[in-house]
Design a protein around this nucleic acid. Structure first.
Lengths: 243, 243
DNA sequence: CCGTTCGACTGATCCATGTTAGTGATGGTC
DNA sequence: GACCATCACTAACATGGATCAGTCGAACGG
């Protein structure tokens, strides 16, 4: 796979037009590529590591565990997303990370990243955009938990995931492949898995969308957008910003 | 008021030991100081401004409005906190800002800030810490909305506020002054104001804490911490990190 | 001084969602 | 082939919190 086809490059170029030089600087960043099995925790918790990753393949979630034993998933990472960027730049991160599928991730050394930023400002702009989009997603997620009911939350979540996946060429407005279990959805949306099941059934019966056997189908995209009050603006996906 | 006594400096020095030179660089940052009346929206929404503020006096909240007319408060800013740092560094922010009390804020020009960072790395570290603490608070807030019930959320919120205020010398483990209405609490905690009232009454009757007439009193700090499962770790308040 | 607004506060009712306790299908493993 | 774990799915029941519909007191503008 050439750099241009990597999910990370696809995501960035959707936002900032990158020159060939920018792209080759990007490919120089990629260090050792590692694989991790699904399920077992990568447990970055409490560690302060000097290395971050760019997820090349597979899905990951970051979550916090509560004393009661329940957990809250803060967000999901898909190919092209950073893993552990914060724990490089800031202090040790306080949440845990679990691979949902088998994953492949390329190491990025903090120094290399900062050097590349100095030489290629557009690259820096693109990465900052990605980071700020991720933050906007957390805020939107928070709004959902506070003020949207279960069907809206679910619809919003699936639409957001769909939009992110489309950006890296892993989905269309018709649907996308999705390895999440109903338990993952429950932990992300602050619901019980029982209720997740009910809500999914209702969305299906209402002809809005169908989630079955690892695949999400948008049965009526526009009506789902309306029901979920989904506003793409916060994802900032409407074409390159810097030409 | 000397720089050292400003809430911003107090907050930073609680985390990173700053030299006299660092502190004077800090005081050079402060630009024009402006006042805003309570209530009227500062409406940064959709604007991309080149100026941020450091809140010197008063309380502010940032929130998102939903189509249904309800709102979700994302967080509160108190003296010493940044206002609009994100909209300087990143793209236009998509939430609104409302002063809760009359406020005073000093302008910070983005360039000045970046220059100061280059010259005084410890200052940069301190500001980065502040930014990452704010993010950690948003995540913790999200966890609360997803997985804590109303009394825990309320307790957690009041304890967090108390800890932040103590850092800038505006509160103790006994309590603090708090200009928030029960509507503010409702919008922040994802509850109805009716339920906020009930929960406050219950906390009072249980001898945990009392919120009345603009004042929060911790009646039994330790028991409240336990009830709310409040873990200070994410605030990172345990003394200076860099000596 | 009166009327208006706003915030704290309450009781009654209802419903969205949680909890408990299952069934059945699938796939992996020894 | 037996066993086990995991996941989707369901029904019955319980409940936290929303909603509705107020009262009351304080602050405020005219």
């Amino acid at each position: 796979m050439t750099v241009l086809e990597s999910p990370f490059a696809r995501k960035l170029t959707a936002f900032v037009t990158l020159s060939d030089d920018d792209l080759s600087a990007l490919s120089d960043l990629y260090g050792r590529r590692r694989k991790y099995p699904a399920g077992r925790d990568m447990s970055h918790e409490g560690q302060k590591s000097q290395v971050a990753y760019i997820l090349a393949e597979g899905w990951v979630c970051s979550y916090k565990l509560l004393p009661s034993g329940t957990r809250q998933i803060v967000d999901f990472q898909i190919p092209g997303d950073f893993l552990g960027l914060r724990s490089v730049l800031f202090r040790t991160s306080d949440h845990s990370v679990e691979p949902i599928t088998r994953i492949e991730a390329s190491e990025i050394r903090a120094n290399d990243l900062l050097e590349a930023f100095a030489k290629r400002p557009r690259l820096a702009a693109a990465v900052l955009w990605a980071a700020s989009r991720d933050e906007a997603m957390v805020v939107e997620h928070l709004v959902g938990l506070g003020r949207r009911d279960a069907p809206q939350r679910m619809g919003h979540f699936l639409l957001e995931l769909g939009a992110r996946l489309r950006l890296i060429g892993r989905g269309t407005k018709a649907g996308f492949d999705c390895p999440l279990s109903q338990y993952h959805l429950a932990d992300a949306l602050g619901l019980s898995s029982v209720h997740v099941n009910r809500v999914l059934r209702q969305l299906r019966e209402d002809g809005l969308c169908t989630f079955r056997r690892g695949r999400v189908e948008f049965d009526d995209y526009e009506r789902l957008v309306e029901m979920a009050e989904f506003d793409r603006a916060y994802l900032d996906h409407e074409g390159p910003l810097l030409k």
